[in-house]
Amino acid sequence: RYRTTFTSYQLEELERAFQKTHYPDVFTREELAMRLDLTEARVQVWFQNRRAKWRK
């Protein structure tokens, strides 16, 4: 599977959502995914990776 490349707008929005909550529920993820034209799975994985980065 190829690596997803996020646009700067998508990253800004994902980071903004991350500032609000590190653990968005499925509705929040679905809403973000639709708004950013991504799949909910991509959003979920982004948050997993972002939390890992945050913990370091």
Rank of each mutant, 00 (worst) to 15 (best):
Y2V: 12
W54A: 13
V26C: 07
R51V: 07
Y2P: 05
W46M: 02
F47I: 01
V45L: 12
L32Q: 00
F47E: 00
V43Q: 00
R3C: 13
V45A: 06
E15I: 03
K56M: 11
T21K: 14
R55K: 09
T39W: 04
L11W: 07
F27L: 08
A41D: 14
K20T: 07
E15D: 04
D37Y: 10
S8A: 11
Y2A: 15
T21A: 10
V45D: 14
F47Y: 05
Q48V: 14
E15W: 01
K53H: 15
W46C: 00
W54Y: 12
R29W: 03
A33G: 10
D37I: 04
T5N: 11
E40K: 06
D37L: 07
K56Q: 06
E31F: 08
N49E: 15
D37K: 15
A33H: 01
E31S: 14
D25V: 02
F18R: 01
V45P: 01
F47M: 05
S8Q: 12
F18T: 00
W54V: 03
H22D: 10
L14D: 00
A52E: 11
E31H: 11
R51A: 05
T28E: 05
V45M: 10
L11P: 04
L38R: 01
V43S: 01
V26S: 11
F18A: 02
K20C: 13
K53S: 15
A41V: 10
R16W: 03
Y23T: 15
T28R: 09
S8W: 03
R29Q: 09
Y23I: 07
Q44R: 06
V45K: 05
T4V: 08
T7Y: 04
R42M: 10
E12S: 09
D37H: 15
D37W: 04
L11K: 10
E30A: 13
W54D: 15
T5P: 08
D25E: 05
D37V: 10
Y2C: 04
A52F: 08
F6S: 04
Y9D: 06
Q48D: 14
K20S: 12
Y2N: 15
E15P: 02
R42G: 13
D25S: 08
W46I: 00
K53V: 15
E40Q: 09
Q48H: 12
M34W: 07
R16H: 11
F27C: 12
F6P: 09
T21M: 11
F27A: 15
K56N: 06
E12A: 06
Y9R: 09
A41N: 05
E12I: 09
L32H: 00
E40S: 12
P24L: 05
A52D: 13
M34A: 11
E13M: 10
Y23G: 02
D25N: 11
V43M: 02
L11Q: 14
R16Q: 13
T28K: 09
Q48Y: 14
R51M: 10
T39I: 05
T5H: 08
R51D: 03
W54I: 14
L11Y: 04
R16L: 06
E15F: 01
A41T: 13
Q10T: 02
K20P: 00
M34Y: 07
A41L: 08
Q19I: 12
V43K: 01
A17D: 02
R29F: 06
A41I: 09
E31G: 13
R35T: 07
L32W: 01
E30I: 07
L32N: 00
Y9S: 06
T7K: 03
L11F: 05
E13D: 04
N49L: 06
A52I: 09
R1L: 10
K53T: 11
P24K: 00
P24A: 04
A33V: 04
E13A: 12
L36K: 01
H22I: 13
R35A: 05
R1C: 08
R29C: 07
Q19W: 11
F27S: 15
M34G: 15
A41P: 13
T21Q: 12
L38D: 03
Q19P: 02
K53M: 06
E30Q: 10
A33L: 01
E40F: 09
Q19A: 15
R55L: 11
A33W: 00
E31A: 12
S8D: 14
P24G: 00
L32G: 00
E15M: 02
R42P: 06
R42Q: 10
P24F: 05
E15V: 02
R51K: 03
N49C: 10
W54C: 11
Q44D: 08
W54R: 06
L14E: 00
A17K: 06
K56C: 04
S8P: 13
R55G: 11
R55H: 01
T5Q: 09
A33N: 02
Q10C: 00
R3E: 13
R3D: 10
K53A: 14
E31I: 06
F6H: 05
F18M: 01
R51W: 09
R29K: 07
W46E: 01
T21W: 04
Q48W: 07
A52G: 09
R50A: 13
Y9E: 12
D25P: 12
F47G: 00
N49T: 14
K56S: 15
K56T: 04
F18K: 00
Q44E: 09
D25W: 00
L38E: 05
D25K: 03
V26H: 15
E13F: 03
F27K: 13
M34Q: 14
T4A: 07
T4I: 08
R35K: 13
T7G: 05
R55C: 11
R1D: 15
K56I: 08
T7E: 09
R50K: 11
A52T: 11
L32P: 01
L38I: 13
T39E: 14
L14C: 03
R50C: 03
A52H: 08
T28V: 11
L11G: 06
E40T: 09
T4H: 07
Q19R: 06
E30H: 03
Y9L: 13
V43P: 01
N49G: 10
Q10D: 04
K56F: 08
P24R: 01
Q10N: 02
Q44C: 11
V26F: 14
K20G: 10
L38G: 02
T4D: 14
L38K: 00
E15H: 02
T4W: 07
R42D: 12
R50E: 12
L32K: 02
T4K: 03
E15K: 02
R42F: 11
V26A: 08
R3S: 15
N49V: 10
E15N: 06
R16D: 03
E12R: 03
R42W: 12
L32R: 00
A17M: 07
E15T: 03
R16C: 05
Q19M: 07
L11T: 14
D37R: 12
Q19Y: 02
M34R: 15
E31Y: 09
R29T: 14
L36M: 05
T4G: 06
R55I: 14
L36N: 04
Q44W: 07
F6N: 04
R3N: 15
L14G: 00
P24Q: 01
E15Q: 04
P24N: 02
F27V: 15
R55A: 13
E15S: 04
R42S: 14
W54G: 11
F27M: 14
L32V: 05
L11C: 04
D37P: 02
F18I: 02
N49Y: 07
R29V: 14
T7H: 04
M34E: 11
F6E: 14
A41Q: 12
R1T: 14
L36G: 01
N49H: 08
T39S: 07
T7S: 08
L14I: 04
T7L: 04
Q19H: 07
A52R: 06
W54K: 10
R16P: 00
R16V: 09
S8V: 04
Q48I: 03
H22N: 07
E30S: 10
E12F: 06
Y23S: 10
T4C: 06
T21C: 13
Y2G: 15
T7P: 02
H22Q: 14
R29A: 12
A33R: 10
A41W: 06
L32T: 04
L14T: 00
K53F: 05
L38N: 00
R29D: 00
T39R: 08
S8C: 05
Y23A: 12
